[in-house]
């Protein structure tokens, strides 16, 4: 395995930390949003937008760009933070998130530069990703398509319709990433729907399956490398994560799925913990 520059790893970790800080700031200011699933996905988004994906912030609709679909659209705060930091729009706009006069809609919308698909109603993003991957093959383009799904989200039947079709069509330009934080809106996933053995399910549907720690940027980079080398079938990366990662009182609970920090004290504590985390990088 080729080695990864340790400086690059540190940089990506710092970016993930920034995404988390922005997410908390945006959601607290708006007094609305979904911190739990934004924090669990921050490392994945950092690697995608600052390492893996071929995009041009000056030309967001560039036909040769890699595509990304945030199928778990409620993690919009983290997504917008990544897009802004990557240069798609000014970072200061992030603090208009969810305002009536802002283009930064509560869930990803084509109003936002850099967003490839409207999402928010869960379970539909993988289908859109298949469409983009099919078009890429038709047009003989080498762009790749990435779709980020929640683990609660994959309880939707639509996801498995898409899973069968992607394998049937041998879409090796398509990568699904499952944010396996083990919690959905009401409760822990395994108390609602038994998802395990999750890896075997995807394998049975014809996918290449790679299981990783979704907070380890080196593992995320390597998994995406492996996916690129895989021919003749789509790859799914099961990213084992912690819901609310980085803010202790939000970790491993459904309570902060769709709730901002509940008061100034909680807000300050979240920022302080993320700052401490950053110093350790």
């Amino acid at each position: 395995m080729s080695s990864i520059d340790p400086e690059k790893v540190k940089e990506l970790k710092r970016i993930a930390n920034d995404i988390r800080v922005w997410s908390i700031k945006m959601i607290y200011r708006a007094q609305s949003g979904h911190p739990g699933g934004a924090l669990s996905a921050a490392d994945i988004l950092a690697v995608l937008y600052f390492h893996e994906m071929r995009v041009d912030p000056k030309n967001p609709e560039w036909p040769d760009r890699d595509r990304f679909v945030l199928s778990k659209g409620h993690a919009s705060a983290a997504y917008y933070a990544a897009l802004a930091m990557r240069g798609f729009f000014p970072e200061e706009d992030l603090l208009t998130f969810r305002d009536v006069n802002s283009y930064l809609q509560g869930h990803p919308s084509l109003m936002v530069p850099g967003v490839d698909m409207c999402t928010g109603s869960l379970g539909q993003g993988l289908s859109a990703g298949i469409g983009m991957a099919l078009a890429g093959k038709m047009d003989k383009k080498d762009y790749r398509v990435y779709v980020l799904l929640g683990d609660g989200e994959i309880e939707e039947g639509n996801v498995w319709e898409a899973a069968m079709t992607a394998a049937t069509r041998k879409l090796d330009n398509l990568v699904a990433i499952v944010d396996r934080n083990k919690i959905q809106l009401d409760d822990f996933t395994d108390r609602m729907v038994e998802l395990d053995p999750l890896e075997e399910k995807w394998r049975g549907f014809g996918w290449r399956v790679i299981s990783i720690n979704g907070h380890d940027v080196t593992q995320i980079i390597r998994a995406l490398d492996e996916a690129r080398k895989t021919k003749g079938r789509p790859t799914v990366i099961i990213a084992h994560t912690v819901k609310g990662k980085g803010v202790s009182y939000m970790e491993n609970t459904a309570k902060y799925h769709g709730k901002p920090p509940q008061n100034e004290e909680e807000y300050e504590r979240a920022l302080k913990e993320l700052e401490e985390e950053r110093r350790k990088i």
Binding site: G33, G73, Q105, G106, H107, S109, G120
Partner: peptide, 8 residues
């Protein structure tokens, strides 16, 4: 519904 936007 408010802040969640058009999708919701």
């Amino acid at each position: 519904v408010g802040e969640d936007g058009a999708s919701h």
